[in-house]
């Protein structure tokens, strides 16, 4: 994928802007999933993804190819998200409760083949609890845990995407998982977690 990205980027930089469509198609689903879980708001995630792709296009000549394009893109997106969240905090527009409310399953393919209705319902409830738990994390921990456990980036890529040291990624991720465990336990969800 990296070579495909690099090829597309070179095409764009050489004047073939249509090549950017391939880049968007290649990464948007992943980025949207990341953002939805990171912010708990599908519409905001779409907006930020749009903005991130736009900024990436605008600054494409600044991409030096040392990292994965997606990592670079994720960093743009996460910073846009952080900026938005911090602005909202300044305006007192966001709360954990609001995040909880904003979460829904729209946009996610959470259908499990061959699942009975009961199993599907249970799955949906579990996923909803997990999303709510993620939403209750503070933004820094949420970003790390989503980048790692949902998006699958390694620590180094997360560090690059968030502009923090790898050691911080490690500690932040661990604390995020501990907090998630605690939240999920409090929600009394039967997730097989040990009791505190």
């Amino acid at each position: 994928m990296q070579s495909e990205d690099q090829q597309s980027i070179e095409q764009v930089l050489s004047g073939d802007s249509s090549a950017y469509r391939a880049i968007v198609d290649r990464h948007q689903r992943r980025l949207l999933g990341l953002l939805v879980h990171a912010c708990g708001d599908c519409e905001l995630a779409e907006d930020i993804a749009q903005e991130a792709f736009a900024r990436a296009y605008q600054k494409l000549d600044m991409f030096n190819g040392e990292s994965q394009f997606y990592t670079w893109l994720a960093r743009i997106a996460m910073n846009l998200l952080f900026s938005d969240q911090r602005r909202k905090r300044l305006e007192n527009q966001v709360s954990r409760a609001a995040l909880d409310v904003a979460l829904d399953s729209d946009g996610f393919a959470n259908r499990r083949p061959n699942a009975t209705p009961e199993q599907q319902m249970e799955l949906n409830e579990t996923q909803q609890c997990v999303r709510q738990a993620i939403a209750m994390l503070d933004e820094e921990r949420r970003a790390v845990v989503v980048l790692r456990d949902f998006d699958g980036l390694d620590y180094e890529a997360i560090a690059e995407a968030l502009g923090i040291p790898v050691g911080t990624v490690r500690s932040r991720l661990h604390r995020a998982r501990l907090e998630l465990r605690s939240i999920l336990q409090q929600k009394a969800v039967q997730l097989g977690l040990s009791s505190q």
Binding site: R29, R30, C42, G107, F108, A109, R131
Partner: peptide
């Protein structure tokens, strides 16, 4: 958690 399959 399921992958995104919503609006692109």
């Amino acid at each position: 958690l399921p992958a995104w399959s919503g609006k692109l």
